[in-house]
Measured scan of single mutants.
Amino acid sequence: SSQSQGISSSSTSTMPNSSQSSHSSSGTLSSLETVSTQELYSIPEDQEPEDQEPEEPTPAPWARLWALQDGFANLECVNDNYWFGRDKSCEYCFDEPLLKRTDKYRTYSKKHFRIFREVGPKNSYIAYIEDHSGNGTFVNTELVGKGKRRPLNNNSEIALSLSRNKVFVFFDLTVDDQSVYPKALRDEYIMSKTLGSGACGEVKLAFERKTCKKVAIKIISKRKFAIGSAREADPALNVETEIEILKKLNHPCIIKIKNFFDAEDYYIVLELMEGGELFDKVVGNKRLKEATCKLYFYQMLLAVQYLHENGIIHRDLKPENVLLSSQEEDCLIKITDFGHSKILGETSLMRTLCGTPTYLAPEVLVSVGTAGYNRAVDCWSLGVILFICLSGYPPFSEHRTQVSLKDQITSGKYNFIPEVWAEVSEKALDLVKKLLVVDPKARFTTEEALRHPWLQDEDMKRKFQDLLSEENESTALPQVLAQPSTSRKRPREGEAEGAETTKRPAVCAAVL
Rank of each mutant, 00 (worst) to 15 (best):
Val364Arg: 15
Met273Arg: 14
Ile254Pro: 00
Leu323Cys: 15
Ser325Phe: 14
Ala442Glu: 11
Lys258Gln: 06
Phe261Leu: 04
Gln299Val: 01
Thr347Gly: 05
Leu382Met: 08
Cys354Gln: 02
Pro357Gly: 03
Ile333Tyr: 01
Asn259Ile: 08
His308Cys: 11
Ser469Ala: 14
Glu473Val: 01
Lys256Pro: 06
His314Leu: 03
Asp265Met: 15
Gln408Lys: 07
Leu295Lys: 13
Gln327Phe: 10
Leu467Lys: 07
Lys281Thr: 13
Gly345Thr: 07
Leu317Lys: 00
Lys248Met: 08
Glu497Gly: 11
Leu295Gly: 05
Cys331Gln: 02
Val282Trp: 03
Val304Tyr: 01
Asn374Leu: 01
Lys248Ala: 08
Leu386His: 07
Tyr266Ser: 09
Tyr267Phe: 10
Lys434Val: 03
Arg488Asp: 07
Leu431Trp: 00
Tyr393His: 08
Gln327Trp: 00
Lys434Thr: 04
Thr486Ser: 08
Cys354Asp: 02
Leu477Tyr: 13
Lys247Leu: 10
Ile268Leu: 13
Gln327Tyr: 11
Leu353Ser: 06
Glu495Ala: 11
Gln465Thr: 05
Arg488Val: 09
Phe261Thr: 07
Leu295Thr: 04
Gln299Ser: 11
Leu295Phe: 11
Ile417Gly: 12
Asn259Leu: 15
Leu324Glu: 06
Leu278Met: 10
His308Ser: 03
Gln483Val: 12
Ser367Met: 15
Lys258Met: 14
Pro491Gln: 13
Pro418Ile: 13
Lys248Phe: 05
Ile257Lys: 04
Lys318Thr: 00
Lys294Leu: 03
Ala496Val: 08
Val282Tyr: 02
Glu290Pro: 13
Arg351Ala: 06
Thr370Pro: 11
Asp262Ala: 08
Val432Ile: 06
Ala476Trp: 15
Glu271Met: 13
Glu328Gly: 07
Leu349Gln: 15
Val368Ser: 09
Tyr393Gly: 09
Leu270Pro: 01
Glu458Ser: 10
Phe387Ser: 02
Pro362Thr: 06
Arg488Asn: 10
Leu429Val: 09
Leu353Glu: 04
Ile312Thr: 06
Cys379Gly: 10
Phe261Glu: 02
Glu264Pro: 08
Glu426Asp: 10
Leu301Lys: 00
Phe338Ala: 00
Leu317Gly: 01
Asp378Trp: 04
Gln408Glu: 09
Val507Ser: 10
Ser325Cys: 10
Leu431Ile: 06
Tyr414Val: 00
Asn321Thr: 03
Gly345Lys: 11
Leu301Met: 01
Leu360Gln: 07
Arg287Gln: 10
Glu290Phe: 04
Tyr266Lys: 09
Glu277Ile: 02
Leu324Phe: 03
Glu290Ser: 08
Glu500Asp: 11
Ile388Asn: 13
Ala506Ser: 03
Arg490Gly: 07
Ser381Asp: 04
Tyr267Thr: 04
Leu450Ile: 08
Gly311Tyr: 10
Ile335Tyr: 04
Asp457Thr: 00
Val424Trp: 15
Pro362Lys: 00
His340Gly: 01
Glu447Gly: 10
Phe387Ile: 02
Leu249Cys: 05
Leu435Phe: 14
Lys256Gln: 09
Asp337Met: 01
Asn259Gly: 05
Val507Trp: 09
Asp457His: 10
Ile409Leu: 08
Phe279Pro: 02
Gly494Trp: 13
Pro362Ser: 02
Gly392Val: 00
Glu274Gly: 10
Ile343Tyr: 15
Ser367Pro: 11
Gln483Met: 08
Glu264Trp: 03
Asp459Val: 09
Ala291His: 12
Phe338Ser: 01
Thr401Leu: 14
Lys289Trp: 09
Thr475Trp: 00
Leu386Ile: 03
Leu467Arg: 10
Lys503His: 00
Leu332Ala: 13
Glu398Leu: 03
Glu346Val: 14
Ser325Pro: 11
Lys434Leu: 09
Leu270Asn: 03
Thr486Tyr: 07
Phe396Asp: 02
Gly276Asn: 14
Tyr414Gln: 05
Leu390Ile: 10
Cys253Glu: 09
Tyr298Ala: 11
Ser367Tyr: 14
Ile333Arg: 01
Lys318Arg: 02
Glu274Thr: 09
Leu405Ile: 15
Ile268Phe: 12
Lys281Val: 08
Asn310His: 12
Tyr296Glu: 03
Lys463Ser: 15
Val282Ser: 02
Glu448Asp: 08
Ile313Arg: 06
Arg351Ser: 06
Arg462Ile: 03
Pro252Ile: 13
Lys489Pro: 11
Gly276Phe: 06
Pro491Leu: 12
Glu277Asn: 06
Lys289Val: 03
Lys427Gln: 08
Thr292Tyr: 12
Pro484Asp: 13
Asp337Val: 05
Gln465Leu: 12
Thr336Ile: 03
Glu320Gln: 08
Cys354Thr: 00
Glu500Gln: 11
Leu332Val: 10
Thr502Ser: 05
Ile313Asn: 15
Ser325Val: 08
Ser404Cys: 14
Leu272Tyr: 15
Phe279Ser: 05
Asp280Asn: 09
Ile255Gly: 08
Tyr306Leu: 04
Lys258Ser: 07
Glu271Val: 11
Lys441Arg: 11
Arg462Met: 07
Glu458Gly: 11
Val304Thr: 10
Lys503Met: 11
Trp421Gln: 03
Ser391Leu: 15
Arg462Glu: 01
Leu386Pro: 02
Tyr359Asp: 01
Leu390Phe: 01
Val480Asp: 13
Asn472Thr: 14
Val511Ala: 12
Lys286Arg: 07
Ile255Thr: 05
Ser397Pro: 08
Lys294Ala: 14
Gly345Ala: 12
Thr502Val: 02
Gly276Val: 03
Ile417Pro: 03
Tyr393Asp: 03
Lys286Asp: 11
Val507Cys: 05
Leu324Tyr: 00
Leu429Ser: 13
Asp407Arg: 01
Gly284Val: 09
Pro505Gln: 04
Ala449Thr: 12
Ala476Lys: 12
Pro357Phe: 15
Gly339Leu: 02
Arg315Met: 01
Ser404Glu: 00
Thr347Glu: 02
Thr356Asn: 00
Ala371Ser: 11
Tyr393Ala: 00
Cys379Thr: 10
Arg351Gln: 06
Gly276Glu: 12
Arg492Ser: 11
Thr486Asp: 08
Lys342Thr: 04
Lys256Phe: 11
Ala510Arg: 04
Leu302Met: 11
Val384Ala: 00
Cys293Pro: 04
Cys508Leu: 12
